[in-house]
């Protein structure tokens, strides 16, 4: 664990739904982090997240050697020295945990990404969902509201399913109508929830082929680990998941910060 004399490297991921901060020590250990709703004040939320993360890491703000921000609100982070896209940061973060050629599936609040890396961690290709948010966290949030089920209970409910209800529509709004129809037909709520998870998986798997090993990241994966089990079953593949999948982008940003600080030091010498 770090102490107040150590220098740290910070990654801030201001996502459309949640803001995440990750603090790494000199050896790239994750020593502090925080997650909260991005809200409408991106800069303020990033600041609060940073304070909480520093508290957890037990370091003061002046120990921050370098900060890189990412995510939709990356340009709103006043204390960031540099910005990187979330695609680069998820790739960097994931490769840190799993240094191998892989396909990364990131399911975020408003967008999904499929990123392919070679065995050196270089990006070969990436795809984001088209402008429609079907199959993202926003879809599950909308459906939890429709079904009047707290978001955090969805995972446990899906696990109780005995006969999954399949939903056909691309569109979140039409899926909502379909769900209402299933309720009217007397389908069980756990079976519908599992169907919603399956719908998310279908949207992601149709974005690109899966090559090499497969890793999954993002807030939706962190809070709904059953979704990963379902992907394992559907694809007959072992799926890698980092310890804190929701923090992957922030960790990647912090790793870029660590590299930038090292490069800066070399330049200064």
């Amino acid at each position: 664990m770090s102490n107040d004399t150590d220098e740290v490297f910070v990654g801030v991921d201001v996502g459309a739904s949640r803001t995440k901060v990750a603090i790494l020590d000199a050896a790239a250990n994750l020593i502090g982090y925080d997650v909260r709703k991005s809200g409408t004040d991106f800069a303020g939320t990033a600041d609060l997240c940073m304070e909480a993360s520093l508290d957890m890491a037990a370091v003061s703000r002046n120990k921050i050697q370098y900060c890189v921000s990412t995510g939709y609100g990356r340009k709103n982070v006043a204390f960031s020295r540099e910005t990187k896209t979330e695609i680069s940061c998820h790739a960097r973060g994931c490769y840190h945990y799993f240094p191998m050629a892989m396909t990364i599936i990131d399911i975020g609040g408003q967008d999904n990404k499929v990123i392919k890396l070679d065995d050196q961690g270089r990006r070969i290709n990436f795809k984001m969902n088209r402008k429609c948010a079907a199959g993202t966290g926003a879809f599950l949030e909308e459906m939890s509201a429709r079904l009047d089920i707290p978001l955090e209970e969805m995972d446990a409910l899906a696990r109780q399913s005995t006969e999954m209800v399949e939903l056909g529509s691309y569109c979140t709004v039409f899926s909502g109508t379909e769900v209402l129809e299933k309720i009217r037909q007397g389908k069980k709520v756990p079976d519908i929830v599992k169907g919603l998870f399956f719908s998310v998986i279908k949207r992601v798997l149709e974005m690109d082929s899966l090559t090499d090993r497969v890793a999954m990241t993002g807030g939706v994966v962190e809070h709904n680990p059953y979704l990963v089990d379902m992907v394992r079953e559907i694809t007959s593949r072992d799926i890698l998941v980092p310890e804190h999948p929701q923090l992957t982008g922030a960790v990647g940003a912090a790793l870029f910060a660590r590299e930038a600080a090292a490069a800066e030091m070399i330049r200064d010498e």
């Binding site: 939709y72 990187k84 896209t85 979330e86 695609i87 680069s88 967008d111 270089r122 990006r123 990436f126 984001m128 088209r130 402008k131």
Partner: peptide
């Protein structure tokens, strides 16, 4: 979305 895609693409070229 488009801006992020373009920026990420240039980052990929940088790599």
């Amino acid at each position: 979305q488009a801006k992020t895609n373009i920026e990420a693409f240039i980052e990929q070229l940088e790599e």
